[in-house]
Amino acid sequence: MTLQVVAFYLFASIVIASAVMVILARNPVHSVLWLILAFFNAAGLMVLLHAEFIAMLVVIVYVGAVAVLFLFVVMMLDIDFASLRAGFVKNFPLGIAVALVLLAELVLGIGAYRAGALNLGAAEGTAAPIPMTSNIESLGAVLYSEYLFLFEAAGIVLLVAMIGAIVLTHRDLRSPRAHQDIGKQVRRNPDEATIMTQPAVGKGVDL
């Protein structure tokens, strides 16, 4: 039990610290790297909550794919980040106002928490976890039976995302100059690659 508490505080403090560093880092690439650290520790927190599937998703999808996408986007955009930061003093009052709103929300949230539990609806029927199984198994059991129609529809959504990315960014670069056909290069033989000529003296070669 105590080990869990220690682990919780370890993960939680690293999440918060790296989240702060995401904002404070001067180099946007460093921000993304700090974000990856935050994702990893969030995955640790999910394991402590017994939500193993979410922990796995965070590592595989967020760290493995989304963070990489962020890196690419940061590298792709031609933005002068120094000039973006230049308006800091000018926007300072606005920033303070947003911070105050968030602080007020935090206070209200703590107040609501102190006021006692809400009358939330109970998860019942299909939404209830199956006893004596890990949550990844319960999740699979509903996702591939109750919700199979929506699962297939989600597959179509992913497919449309693929088509969209290809439609919007892919350019057919297979012009004769840019395209390298390795098979053709390998099949080349001396007969078609060279020509033998016997030019007369002083005539030069016709190409």
């Binding site: 599937f53 792709m76 319960s138 999740l139 990315a165």
Partner: peptide, 26 residues
């Protein structure tokens, strides 16, 4: 910008792989 296309395709297939885990155990 072609890196972006590669990354999007990677995300799609990554998600596909992630869905295989709960399927396999259940």
């Amino acid at each position: 910008v072609r890196f972006y296309l590669v990354a999007i395709l990677f995300i799609v297939f990554d998600l596909e792989a992630a869905f295989l885990f709960p399927w396999a155990v259940s």
